[in-house]
């Protein structure tokens, strides 16, 4: 019962759409794009190719009530088979090279790849390490890079938008 009273007292905390702000603007665009291109339903598979987990924390933020990714028809899925988009973080380590490639292969077409964080592009502080293969695009084709260390959830959303933009019209 306490749970329900709490639910009632909190109400909806998701940032409303007419609240202005960059994120919301982005979100609106994302919504429009996804609707057009993927029937406004995009499954996202997150791949940690060797990150420091900073990006993951931010990505997790996307599912929180505040950002509530779901309202745009985006959702994280459990299998690349169900996914339309791969969200790759971190520099690609040697151990993660093959898994990353396999994940890419396992995802049915049409599909998108968004590389999140600086490491994904430049390998960041890990550059030159014996354990690192290189940036994500050295392994799989990347549609969009999202910069930041770590990038904010809004940045990530922007990246997703950019990626959806690149999806060839069906």
């Amino acid at each position: 019962m306490r749970l329900f009273s709490k639910i009632l007292s909190v109400g909806i905390v998701t940032e409303p759409l007419d609240n202005g702000g960059e994120e919301v603007e982005l979100a609106r665009q994302v919504a429009a794009k996804t609707q057009k291109l993927l029937g406004r339903a995009v499954g996202i598979r997150e791949v940690d190719a060797g990150s420091c987990n900073g990006c993951e924390i931010e990505i997790t933020g996307l599912t929180s009530p505040i950002y509530d990714l779901e309202r745009f028809g985006l959702c994280f899925v459990a299998s690349p088979r169900h996914a339309d988009m791969l969200l790759v973080t971190g520099p690609v380590t040697r151990n993660m090279e093959v898994p990353l490639r396999k994940t890419y292969e396992a995802t049915p077409d049409p599909k998108l790849v968004v590389a999140v964080g600086d490491c994904a592009k430049t390998c960041g502080v890990f550059q030159g390490s014996y354990a690192v293969v290189g940036s994500v695009d050295a392994v799989i084709p990347v549609d969009v890079f999202v910069h930041g260390c770590p990038p904010e959830p809004s940045d990530i959303l922007r990246g997703i938008l950019a990626a959806l933009d690149r999806l060839p019209p069906k």
């Binding site: 791949v47 299998s79 690349p80 088979r81 993660m96 093959v98 898994p99 990353l100 490639r101 396999k102 994940t103 292969e105 396992a106």
Partner: peptide
């Protein structure tokens, strides 16, 4: 394709 196994070799 391969069977999905979390990207194992």
């Amino acid at each position: 394709g391969d069977t999905w196994g979390c990207g194992r070799i």
